[in-house]
Design a protein around this nucleic acid. Sequence first.
DNA 1: ATGGACAATGTTTTT
DNA 2: CATTGTCCAT
Length: 727
Amino acid sequence: MDFLSGLNEQQQQAVIAGLGPVLVLAGPGSGKTRVLTQRIAYLIGIQGVRPHQIMAVTFTNKAANEMSERVGQLIGDHKHGMTIGTFHAICARFLRRESEHLPFESNYVIFDADDQLSLVKQTLRELNIDEKRYRPQSIHSSISIAKNELLLPDDYPINNYRDEVVQRVYKHYQSLLLSNNALDFDDLLLWMAYLLQDNPPIRERYARRYEHVLVDEFQDTNLAQYTLIKQLSSFHQNIFVVGDADQSIYRWRGADYRNVLRFESDFPNRQLVLLEQNYRSTQIILDIAMAMIDRNPNRTPKHLFTRKGAGQKAILHELYDDRDEARYVLEAIASLIVRNQAQPRDIAIMYRTNAQSRILEEAFLSAGIPYKLVGAQRFYGRREIKDIIAFLRFIHNPEDELSLMRIINIPPRGIGDKTLLALRTRAQRAGISPGLFLLELGQNPESKYREGFSRRAEAILSNLGQMFLRWVQRCSNLRPLELMDRIIEDINYDAYINDGTEEGLDRWGNVLELRRLAAEFQEIGLEAFLEQVALVSDQDTLEASANAPTLLTLHAAKGLEFPIVFIVGLNDGTLPHSRSFDDLEAMMEERRLIYVGITRAKDRLYLLYSQNRIAYGYSEPVDPSRFLADIPLDLIDGVSPILSRSSNVGPMTQNQRWQISSDKKVKSSELKSKLYHPGMHVRHNSWGEGMILNSRIEDDDEIVDIFFDGVGLKRVVASLAKLEIKT
DNA sequence: ATGGACAATGTTTTT
DNA sequence: CATTGTCCAT
């Protein structure tokens, strides 16, 4: 029974849990990945479940690969045939397989965030909607949220005029996707969920096949994903989910930690396992994390404990500005390494927004210390990479008009607005996509398709069509790398991009890097390569090999662990982010975010904040993060002014320095003192008892956010609400 | 059709 | 400030 060796009692209970729904609530560092892998091994090795009847859904491809590998270590080759991957990747494969039942072809492309935005813009143009009045991003985000809620255009709820606009855009946007033979990220889930919902025979086929469905990071599923796993497990009902509501950080993407509650009410017979023992962090780190998260109302309290001992106090340090912060980080890292207290790879630096990485990168570069940066966007968002990918995408799916428009004039070959318009019109008249039109033109230069263009345009276009056609024809014989090289050579991309400048060299270097990635797909093929490129997660870009510190956002840090963690930019406005200030749910999520960050640390934790922040080119005074006030003093090394502003003491004792450095706060909140502080318990006449979440002075009155038990979040004006303070 | 010069505008987090 | 879009001269 080595499937259970080294597991504690709760972990064992989860691994060998019987048939039926199982909910595992797992605190950070409680070994949930281990539980998942051992359970899979147990199901296959002991229960005799066939691997192809198991589906395991993870959050990143990296996690999927790791899990698959670890299962392999336990049971060897018996793992083959398992379905394991992210929701998006699994759905992408299913949808290709089932495309005959769907309104797109199996060679569809997946539109990334940039493509989606372009498509929304195109829609707005075609519908004559003013981009200034209706921001494309905001419209797109509404569409995305709707899709995650499984709302089709016709179901889109209309409450005001904007909703009506969104609905129209949504409808048109979908038809554009189909005419490009493309799906966006959200479509992968949406189409799959509807395919299973509307086709009982198909649903049954899948549901019968998957005897066991296991889901990691369950708290970050959205309604579409929740519906999917319910459908997939609808026959055998063996659905095993692992999650932690306190680590739910993707609400803005439609994730709903209440799916945990929904699960409990949908499956009242579920077995429940709690994993509270932490194998990662020192007790001090856990205590800080708990002090932080305890301020969130309406959660099931968890008591995290470890056998690791108290460990060192966390270091809280105030710096002058973010540049100074970066300098401090570099010095601390240098000192740790020189004193042999850490390997470079043991160290991570985490921040709230991607923009913060820049200043850190500069510090690393000028210090000559190598670093690893987590972020797929950084690589795949580059112009030269997008260009090459667009060529490949077009060849794979010539109906991809967006990719065609990107590459049609790269390198510049004299195709401008006029020619483009002519091409579009002619293609439309012929009833085919511009891409197919071009290929046709290349195939048969004498065809009727050539009519209606200027002689110049006709020559350019039919040349281009011939080149495209050659690629498309060879695409079935050539492997990804050869195809890519062929394109680069044919268009002389080297000369175009590598213009002798340092930047050009850099860009060319990126192209070579992409070649290296393509080389890994020689056997599996172009389609798999393009799919991988579209669905990479940030974490997937982290190479374990290099011995260097890691720079990453708090979001990207989820699921990872490091002996030493720096969290920088702990200032109000950054963490919590200013966009969250007026939304109580969002503020709770900001708190969970810092909780996730803290619980990544195994041994040492550095918390840094600054007096000033450089933004928009100007340096501006900022406040320390309000969350810092919740850390018990005795867990911290390096006393700083903010600590005297602990919520129990009240703002009057706040150090003078802060009042001086932050002039915008001085005006109001510091002149009139607050009566209520986060963490206080109060009673309200009609809403009963609640806990103060936040309070601020505005126009000589105090505005208080309170969470009332059984009622929810309320914002009240103190002078009107008659709150009674409970002790 | 192309590329350069200027203005305007805007920063969360990502599969 | 840094990126993106728009206008204008070639």
